[in-house]
Write a protein that binds this DNA or RNA. Structure first.
Lengths: 175, 175
DNA sequence: GCATAATACTTGACATCTCAAGTATCTCGC
DNA sequence: GCGAGATACTTGAGATGTCAAGTATTATGC
C-alpha cells in the first residue's frame, strides 16, 4: 500500500494512525513470510546435500553436532533442550543413530533414570566429514551476500531474537 | 510452515574447535543458525496457537491461505509450488481439509489430469477467523521491533533470497 | 518411613514431509 | 492416428515432529 503524498493532507493525517497500524501489520506479516522463505531455501538445500552425500538427515546431523561439542555425553533431556524438540523425538533419532553404531547410550551411575548419549569413534569420524561439507554448503549459499550485509543481518536478527523471547506469551516449549 | 526445524547450534562451535575457520565462514554459519532460530521461534508459537485456538495445523492454514488469494482455485501443482513442498504432501493435506469440508477438489473440464482446489464457504469463513488471529500473533511477536529495523530486515532478507536462488545447485558433488 | 510429587525417558497415535514408483492423461512427432 | 515422452496427481515407505499417556526412578514433605 503505497500511501503517496496527496493533496488531502488533512484526511491523511486523520487516518494516519489507523493506516500506520495497518501498514505495520502488513510489514510484520511479510517479514515473517520472507524469513520463512529464506530459511526453507537453505534448509532444503542442506537437507538434500546431507541425503545425497551422506545418506543421512538434518536431525541426525544436528544431534551428532550437539554431541560433538560435548565429549562427555549428553542426557536425552539436554539433547531435547538444545535441539529445541520434544523428548519423544530425541528418543527416535537416538534409536536410529544407535542402530547405525554412531552413538551409544550409557547408563548414569548416580541416577538410573538417565542415559548419557555419546558419539562413537565411528560417529565422530563421520560427523567430522559431514561438518566440513556442511560448512562448505552454507558458505557457498551465503557467500555471495556481501560481508557488510551479513553483519547487518546478524545484528538485526539478534534484535529480532531478543524481541521474540521478550514478547513471549509465557508459553513454554518442550514437554 | 515449515518444515523441519532443527537447530544445528553446535555446528559453529564444533567447527571452531576442529578446524581453522575463516571469519567469513564463521559469519555465514552463525547467520544461518540465527536465521533458523528466529524462524523456529515464530513458527513454533504460531503452530501452538493454531492448535490450541483452532485445532488445526500450520500446513493446513498455509494451504488455505494460498486458496484465499486465488478464488478461482489452484491446481495441486500450483499449491505444491507456492507452498514449497512436494506434490505428495499437498495430496495429504488436501485430503484432510476436504474430509473436513473446508476445501473441494473440482475436476478441470479441459484437462482431466487436473484438480482445481477451492475453499468452500465454510472454509472461507474459518480461514478469515484464523487469519485475523494469525496476524495478531505475528504482530505481537514482531511488534516490538522498531519499524526501521523491520524495513531493513525486509530489504536484507530480500537480498539474501536473491543470492540464494542465484547460488543454485552446481556445488554439490565436490571433494 | 512412606505417600506424593517431580524427573527422565519411552511409547503410541497422528500429522507432516520427502522420495520414488505408479496411474492416468495429454502432447508432439511422424 | 499412434506411440514415446511429458505432465498431473496419488500412493507407500521411511524419517521427523508434537502431544499425551505410561513406566521407572529419585526427591520431598510430613
Amino acid at each position: 500500500m503505497p500511501r503517496e503524498k496527496t493533496a488531502l493532507k488533512a484526511v491523511t493525517a486523520a487516518l494516519d494512525a489507523e493506516t500506520r497500524v495497518h501498514d505495520d501489520h502488513h510489514v510484520s506479516l511479510r517479514l515473517w513470510l520472507r524469513l520463512l522463505a529464506c530459511t526453507n531455501q537453505i534448509e532444503g538445500r542442506v537437507r538434500q546435500n546431507l541425503q545425497s552425500g551422506f545418506d543421512t538427515t538434518l536431525p541426525r546431523f544436528d544431534l551428532m553436532a550437539q554431541l560433538e561439542r560435548a565429549p562427555q555425553g549428553l542426557k536425552m533431556s539436554e539433547l531435547s533442550q538444545r535441539m529445541m524438540v520434544t523428548g519423544g523425538n530425541v528418543t527416535g533419532i537416538t534409536d536410529g543413530l544407535e542402530a547405525e553404531g554412531l552413538v551409544v547410550r550409557e547408563g548414569d551411575a548416580t541416577d538410573r533414570r538417565v542415559y548419557r548419549v555419546k558419539l562413537t569413534t565411528e560417529g565422530e569420524r563421520q560427523f567430522r566429514r559431514m561438518a566440513a561439507e556442511h560448512e562448505r554448503w552454507v558458505v557457498d549459499l551465503l557467500g555471495t551476500l556481501p560481508p557488510r550485509q551479513k553483519k547487518q543481518l546478524m545484528d538485526l536478527l539478534g534484535e529480532l531474537k531478543d524481541c521474540l523471547t521478550g514478547a513471549n506469551g509465557a508459553s513454554e516449549r518442550q514437554t
